[in-house]
Nucleic acid binder design. Structure first.
Lengths: 153, 153
DNA sequence: TTAGCTGCAAAAGGTTTGCAAATTA
DNA sequence: TAATTTGCAAACCTTTTGCAGCTAA
């Protein structure tokens, strides 16, 4: 329905940071760039650290964690949990939810629209407003599902 | 539709343990009892440890963690993540999902049937079989939702 | 007797914190 | 200059692990 939104740029994110009274440092810029470079992936904080260190070797983990936290406060970035293990970060640009296979750990992105029926129902029945995803749904992907017979007609 | 299933008993769980070649120790019995005593709550491993230690003061955390893991392998217990922080354990008796308010951390239990529409859709569209919940859905409960006006007609 | 538990202590993994020094605006 | 960031190191929290001794069956 809606065309893909124009991707957010490094400068736009840095502007948001500036606007909030923040300062733009080399490390912060590199962190944002690392995030944009993986627009379509789910990166852990540790992976961001590595990406930043590939360019500036003396960056501390804590700095990256702090920058990610700040970006999250600004609403530019979100983190979510795909599974046990480290959280993954991504731009908060297009809402979507994740399915994670508990066997092969494959990650499937699914459009937010799919969930509106459910979230509407939860809203009506419980007055609960489901927000953007913080946790993935776990289960088995096609490949890992025990090969049961085809669904009958 | 279906009446509440008869609650599982301590002895039934211990039998399952025995059947799997396990041994019944005082600590294991106390762990199971602690779990049953909180049938309607979501207890962290730490809370189970405390409950067990209240009766037998020298129980090691690791023992309780190991017992919980064993019970999980037997399918008697599950753990799930309501939020950041420790996992919560409960009996794997009746399938349900949890909503957690990110503001007040209230936990709402919701019946599994509510999700069949969605899970069916995910099955059809992605060949993905959503399994019993491992993660909660996060959002805002009625009390914490910014008091917006009533939904217009 | 012997496979299976246990406590202890230590480590692991991911993230946060305190602080003085460095840097940005 | 004043406020914000930074690196470092240490702490944190939850969970796991190794191991020698203990115990249920």
């Amino acid at each position: 329905m809606s065309p893909a939104p124009p991707p957010i740029t490094v400068e736009e994110i840095l502007d948001a940071l500036r606007l909030a009274g923040g300062r733009i440092t080399t490390t912060r810029r590199a962190t944002v760039e690392a995030l944009l470079a993986h627009t379509d992936r789910h990166v852990s904080a540790e992976e961001v650290v590595e990406a930043v260190r590939a360019r500036y070797s003396d960056v501390a983990e804590s700095t990256v964690y702090r920058t990610l936290a700040t970006l999250e406060e600004l609403g530019v970035v979100t983190h979510l949990h795909l599974d046990h293990g480290p959280a993954t970060f991504h731009l908060a640009d297009h809402p979507h939810r994740h399915l994670v296979c508990r066997a092969c750990h494959a990650v499937i992105e699914t459009p937010a629209e799919l969930y509106t029926g459910l979230t509407g129902e939860l809203e009506r029945r419980f007055g609960f407003t489901v927000e953007d995803e913080h946790f993935a749904l776990t289960g088995l992907c096609r490949a890992c599902r025990p090969a049961a017979g085809a669904t009958p007609p």
